[in-house]
Simulated scan of single mutants.
Amino acid sequence: MVVFYGRVRAAAERTIAELPLDAVGRPPWRKHAVSLRWVLVQLIEETARHAGRMDIVRGLIDGAAGDHRPG
């Protein structure tokens, strides 16, 4: 999974470097075109959501919450 994520990240970095934020395209699974800016906002939102879930799982495992470690 980590290798796949690395390939996706590299492809995203190339796209971000090559296109303006206002570039528009339509992914095959969407009915309407979206801008690169919209895609990046969605990516940030999904990454934050998954990172938050992993933080909850970690907390259930070791009892830590945020920056506070169990004493």
Rank of each mutant, 00 (worst) to 15 (best):
I16P: 03
G59S: 00
V3D: 15
T15N: 02
Y5Q: 15
R69S: 15
L40D: 01
V3W: 10
H32G: 04
L21N: 05
T47C: 04
I56A: 09
D55E: 15
G63E: 00
G63T: 01
R9E: 03
V3M: 12
Q42G: 09
H68I: 11
R58Q: 08
L40W: 00
R69V: 14
D62N: 02
Y5C: 15
V24K: 12
L43P: 04
Y5T: 11
V2G: 15
Q42S: 12
A51C: 13
R14M: 05
G71H: 05
H50T: 05
P20W: 02
H32N: 06
M54Q: 06
G6S: 14
A12S: 10
A23V: 10
R14I: 08
A33P: 05
R7E: 15
V8F: 01
R30I: 07
V34E: 06
R26F: 07
G52V: 00
P27C: 06
R58S: 06
V39L: 15
L60I: 07
H50L: 07
M1T: 11
G52F: 01
L21W: 02
V8Q: 00
E18K: 00
R69L: 15
L21K: 03
D67I: 10
V24Q: 13
T47F: 04
A23N: 07
G59P: 00
R37I: 00
R69T: 13
M54R: 07
P27N: 07
E18L: 01
G52L: 01
D22G: 07
A33V: 06
L21E: 05
A65T: 11
R9I: 01
V2C: 11
A17M: 01
M1E: 11
R49H: 13
L36N: 02
L60Q: 08
A33Q: 05
H68A: 12
R9D: 03
R37L: 04
R14E: 10
A11Y: 03
D62L: 01
G66R: 06
V8P: 00
D22F: 04
V2P: 09
A11W: 04
F4C: 12
R53C: 12
D55I: 08
L19R: 06
M1K: 09
